[in-house]
Amino acid sequence: MKKLVIAEKEFSSRLFLGTGKFSSNEVMSDAIKSSKTQMVTVAMKRLDLMNKQNDMLQHITKPGIQLLPNTSGVRNAKEAVFAAQMAREAFGTNWLKLEIHPDPKYLLPDPVETLKATETLAKLGFVVLPYIQADPVLCKRLEEVGAATVMPLGAPIGTNKGLKTKDLLEIIIKQSKVPVVIDAGIGAPSHAAEALEMGADAVLVNTAIAVAGNPVAMAEAFRLAVESGRMAFEAQLAVQFNVAQASSPLTSFLM
């Protein structure tokens, strides 16, 4: 299968994994392994010195895995730029999942602030992967100001509802010159397969794997679905029809 290329870096896995909500670092680490992901997100928080330092980073810093720090918790472009600089210093990478969602109920991304921040961060040399609404116009604007990918949502974060924005995602995929990563809302391997079959370049999954009954097995299920979906896309799906198209001969048997 064709490799995914983002900012001149090649990925053989098209499944990006979020690290939130796992029951333990060990389960998270095993899920990373079974997913065969090469891109793993990490968030940042002010250190609480009363509590011991969390060692989650050592569970995700592995050869062949690109760390993708996110800017969760910021409310505007200015804060996002600061968070990006902190992330670069802490984790030694200029890759960034830009997410600006000031509204705590629906966690929907702010398109205006995201566009502003993307432009600034791209100029500062960051590889910016912005999390955004499934808005085809915004996606083109982000591409123009230097986004490395666009990451439109299928449904709000953590809802597991799948590709509710499918019609818009199709337009985004058709128009985009940068990779399209479907982020948020993917709740089942079938959703991920659907995204890849449509021509999405990758998916980012977190909740659906982390809170599954068996996260390690679910990570593998997602891996297979993503590979299957991509393989189907490259093999070119058969065309849909509104009336039956016979697949067996209808003559020369009884008559």
Binding site: G20, M28, M44, R46, N54, L57, T207
Partner: peptide, 10 residues
């Protein structure tokens, strides 16, 4: 001073 570290997140 502000000091940040890595935590889990998607």
């Amino acid at each position: 001073l502000m000091l940040i570290h890595a935590v889990s997140g998607g």
